[in-house]
Structure formats: C-alpha cells, structure tokens
Amino acid sequence: MITKQNKIPSRSLLKQDEASFHYIDSFQSQAVVDGEQNDIQHIAKLLLSSGPAWIDTLMAIRDQLVKLVGLKTSDLHKAKQQELDELKFELGEQLGIFKLYARSENELILGKDDKHLDFRVSLLLDRPNAETTQKKIAITTAVQFNNLFGRIYFVPVKPFHQLIVRRMLKELVRKARG
C-alpha cells in the first residue's frame, strides 16, 4: 500500500528547506524492503531502470510541447545496465534525467532547475530504528516556482506526476522485495 502526504518526511535532507517550496508531495510505501543489499544506490538503480512504457510516451509528448517555449527537455532514455553500473553517485553527477544534488547513507536528492521552476526529488530509505534492516521507501517531490509560467505549467503536470510517482513506487517496492 502507498500513502501520500503533503509534507517532507522528518528524516529527509529536504526538511530543512521545506518552507522554500511551493508544492510538496511525498509517497511512502507501507510495505518494507529488507536486507543490506537494498541500500540507497541499489534502490536508485532499480528506480532509474524501470518504469512503464506509457511514462516514456507522456514524457516524449511533454518534451515536444516544452521545446516550443524554450524549456529544457528530459533527454529521456531508460538507463542501460552498463550506465547504471558506472554510476558513482557523486554530487553533480547525472543520474538518468536528474542531477544529484545531495546524498546521505539512506537518501538521494535529485532534481533539475529550469527558468520556470526548480524541483527536487528525494529517494529515501526510512529505517524505523538502527537495529533492523527493514526499510520503507519514500519518494518526495518538492517544487519551487520561479515565475507565473511555472505555476501555470504545473497545473496539468500535477495529476500525471502523482500518477507516475505512485506507479513507480509500487513497482520499485515490488522489485526491491524480489
């Protein structure tokens, strides 16, 4: 089961900047993943290598539309295994369509900045306590609108965004649980 909140999880690196964002959503798995092999890098690779084909189609349509108004396109492609194996998870590194802005042992902060809005995505493995290897996965999105166009742009994007994140988290948990 997936739950949704409109706040940043308390253990997230994004929490300190929560007041600066205009939009926040956080989708969290209630199912747990277990095992030390499910570290944040492994979970990120699962996320980057998966996703239904209809998401690629939506992103391709979006890219064609935003190109007309001079916004950045996603340069979308599913990460190949070789590319995933070469990831170092260093700050500033491109992870698929995202740039890595921050990291901790259990979290990656990815995102992109553009003239209309900046966004950050937190991929967080939330461990209830240090004595367990069980973790819940949370995907949190935080958006800062840079102008009126950013707010207008996000109106039709928001429902698709929520659908995509919910679907990807469900698939991510399934893959991580084996």
Rank of each mutant, 00 (worst) to 15 (best):
T3H: 05
T3V: 10
K4A: 03
I8Y: 01
P9S: 04
S10M: 08
S10D: 12
L14R: 04
L14F: 00
K15S: 07
D17R: 11
H22R: 14
I24A: 06
I24R: 03
S26R: 00
F27H: 08
F27N: 04
Q28A: 06
V33E: 00
G35M: 02
I40E: 03
Q41A: 06
I43R: 02
L46F: 05
L46I: 13
L47M: 08
L48G: 03
L48S: 10
S50R: 10
G51F: 13
A53M: 14
D56M: 06
M59N: 13
V66Y: 05
V69C: 12
G70N: 10
G70I: 12
K72T: 14
S74C: 09
S74M: 12
S74F: 08
D75L: 14
H77K: 08
H77D: 11
H77L: 08
K78C: 07
A79T: 11
Q81I: 12
L84V: 01
L84A: 04
D85S: 09
K88Q: 15
L91Y: 08
R103A: 09
R103W: 07
E107G: 02
I109L: 01
I109W: 00
L110R: 03
K112H: 14
K112W: 03
K112N: 13
D113Q: 15
D114V: 12
K115V: 15
H116L: 12
F119T: 05
R120Q: 02
L123I: 09
D126S: 08
D126W: 04
R127P: 00
A130T: 10
A138H: 09
I139P: 00
T141P: 00
A142E: 03
N146S: 05
G150W: 11
I152M: 15
I152Q: 10
F154P: 00
V155P: 07
V155Q: 14
V157P: 09
F160Q: 02
F160L: 06
I164D: 01
M168L: 14
E171N: 11
E171P: 06
A176L: 04
G178D: 08
